[in-house]
Computed example of a mutant assay.
Amino acid sequence: MSEFVSSHIDWPSLNHAEVRQLLEDRGWRLLGSGDWARALVDNSGEVVARISAFEPAYGYFVDLCRRLAGNPWLPRIHLATELEGGGHLALMERLRPRDLDPEGPDAGASIDPLWCDPSDPYLRKLKQELENLDAMNRAEVPWWGGLDLKPDHFMIAADARLKLVDPLYVAGEQLYAAARDNYPEFCRIIPPERHRYLLQIAIFDQPDVAADLPALRQATGLP
Rank of each mutant, 00 (worst) to 15 (best):
D181Y: 04
V170Y: 00
R67P: 06
R217W: 07
D101N: 13
P191K: 05
P207D: 09
K127P: 12
H195W: 07
G34Y: 02
P72T: 00
L40N: 00
D208V: 04
G104N: 04
P192G: 02
A57D: 00
E82P: 15
G108D: 09
A171S: 12
D208T: 08
L31K: 14
A157D: 15
M136D: 10
D42Q: 13
A107I: 03
S110Q: 13
I9W: 12
G146Y: 10
C116T: 07
R38M: 10
A17V: 13
R180Q: 15
A135Y: 08
A171T: 07
Q21E: 14
M155D: 03
V209R: 15
N71E: 09
P118T: 00
W143D: 04
P12Q: 07
A202C: 08
V170G: 01
Y176A: 10
L64V: 05
W11F: 06
G146M: 09
T220A: 11
K163G: 05
V41T: 03
G108C: 03
P97C: 06
A80R: 15
G45K: 12
R196L: 15
G85Y: 03
D205P: 01
M136L: 13
L83V: 11
R67D: 11
L40I: 00
W143M: 09
I156M: 14
N71C: 13
D166A: 01
I203Q: 14
H16R: 03
D106T: 05
H16C: 09
